[in-house]
Design a protein around this nucleic acid. Structure first.
Lengths: 333, 333
DNA sequence: TTGTACGCGTTATCAA
DNA sequence: TTGATAACGCGTACAA
């Protein structure tokens, strides 16, 4: 009474194992009536293909490893969801490798873990391609960058420059003074993402085009406590009416908190624009830039899958655009 | 120029594949000289055994899957580190499966992901054993709970009751009024952890034993914004001098913030005791309960590995004790 | 359109 | 102590 195999299915359905395999893999020509017979046999036996046997027979591991930073933020939850659903459709498995710090990166590179044995690699946010030159990652491994950009690799990225520009254009239209809060860049070269630099460049370009000046800029590290402290600094320094572009919703949320504590009228006296559209943003009326994360993730998976099925050709870059969502924190709706 | 197989190693070492396999698995009798020959061949070829082939031939996959909640908090970083290092020592591979919500749990159970095919299962914080009765998880799969407890399964857990008790004993010694802040319990049965209930029970028991009453209790969800709001409520309601036990450092941190904003003297007029000993706790002078997370994780791995190597017998429970760390938020040091 | 037979990389058995 | 060889469950040429 062991787990049913493809043999059992074939016997019950009265066909050869080859036919069962074809049904399993949606292969070309199988007569529809036999397909049905096979499928019902599969159901009856509650047959589930053994993925390990599939891997060994097919010569592929049917596994993709995903290297990503901390995953608690909504952004990475959505990213992971997009990637996993796309890969699952293609019957690929996913090995998640959270990159928490450099020592974990070393562990990944050094050990011969499952992740390292994968057919393909997805790298999120960080541009780890510089590890190529160190020959740490096998050059020929098919891979794709999500939410990051590098030359010579397929990329699916958010247009953060445009996002910053959209923010700048909006802010430039508001009366009064303009401020911005940025996220501190990581010191470790390898773990540096250019996301916030790009948002900043776009923001400044738009402000300059509109002939507006930024009255003050602030930098915060990416955690709630620091954000709140910086929010206090911003409101101490600001001249009102003021519009603040916070380059991440985390920072914008802290500004809303601090403004509330000070009894400031958010939406008129003080306007706040965030970036990310976190789940709570709608409830708190935070205007922000929404990112099509799932679409970007899905596209990244598609790019990688095409390489895995033999696609050659120059690296492709897919760019996704944020969308401005206006709510009460800027006096809308 | 493909990946070397056991055949290649055997050929280079001038032995049979059986011998190589024996060396690989530390099997009984292999002459030491041939063992060395084989090992050096393995090194030369940079040979790595194919886990899928092992799975299919030997019935084991040498993979452990780890089901755990969001992993950004320091607690899970440390937990993951402890687990990974223990399993790596035993040459087991690790498949991480972050359980972000119910849909991801479904994905794990429904699809036949790598994680699902592992030899063993580690479940962190959540007690998912009720899924057994639904026959969703294969009953016979070796598994261990970390940071959780259930009957009939090996567990490595923190004694949260004792932690709460230690907090209660400390708070009971302080003059003035006593308050407590708890973390909201998840609504979803499956994702319910009893951690905070236990801390609460221990706390109340200790207070009762000391003949002290709790002047007020508050509940917050586990996020920075809510914590700050609740912190405000606590300080609004409190009569001073007051000592507040916050059942998680996240909550305690919000209390420190709010107290600072109000200009309250922390350490005398207001004392705050947290739970977790987050990395920032020392810098901010937060008194708190430190948890030996790595040790607990390592022990969990050991329990599981013993099952995998054939250990039978009744479920074992290993309990770890928090340690009270006193800093300036309670007027120490 | 379908069935047969071989190969994938490893472990386990058995004879040497 | 070793080597040859039969499994393991599946994909896929190739033949029918």
């Amino acid at each position: 009474m062991h787990k049913p195999t493809i043999q059992d299915v074939a016997r019950l359905a009265g066909v050869g194992v080859g036919t069962v395999s074809r049904v399993l893999n949606n292969h070309a020509a199988v007569r529809d009536s036999t397909r049905q017979t096979v499928l019902s046999a599969i159901r009856d036996l509650e047959y589930v293909p053994n993925p390990h046997a599939r891997r060994i027979a097919g010569g592929k591991s049917y596994t993709i490893s995903i290297l990503l930073p901390v995953i608690t933020t909504e952004f990475y939850v959505r990213l992971l969801d997009g990637l996993e659903s796309a890969f699952q459709e293609a019957r690929y498995d996913v090995a998640i490798f959270p990159l928490l710090d450099r020592s974990r990166l070393e562990r990944y590179l050094g050990s011969h873990t499952l992740a390292y044995q994968a057919d393909g690699l997805v790298m999120a946010t960080y541009n780890l391609t510089q590890l190529f030159s160190e020959n740490r990652l096998r050059e020929q491994q098919p891979m794709v960058l999500v939410d990051a950009y590098a030359e010579g690799v397929d990329c699916a990225r958010m247009d953060n420059h445009l996002g910053g520009r959209m923010a700048g254009q909006f802010v430039a239209q508001q009366p009064g003074h303009s401020y911005a809060v940025w996220v501190e860049t990581e010191l470790d070269q390898i773990f540096t993402s250019r996301v916030f630099e790009e948002r900043s460049a776009g923001f400044h370009a738009a402000m300059a085009e509109a002939g507006r000046t930024v009255s003050g800029e602030f930098i915060s590290s990416f955690d709630a406590h620091a954000a709140r402290t910086v929010a206090g600094q911003v409101l101490d320094a600001a001249q009102f009416p003021a519009t603040v572009f916070a380059s991440a919703d985390l920072l914008a949320g802290a500004l809303l908190d601090e403004a509330q504590a000070r009894g400031l009228a958010v939406g008129s006296h003080l306007k706040v624009l965030g970036f990310d559209d976190q789940p709570w943003a709608a409830a708190r009326g935070l205007s922000t830039l929404h990112q099509p994360v799932e679409a970007m993730a899905y596209e990244a998976a598609t790019l990688l899958l095409s390489r895995l099925s033999g696609h050659r050709g120059p690296p492709r870059v897919r760019t996704f655009e944020p969308r401005l969502v206006l709510r009460s924190s800027t006096g809308h709706a």
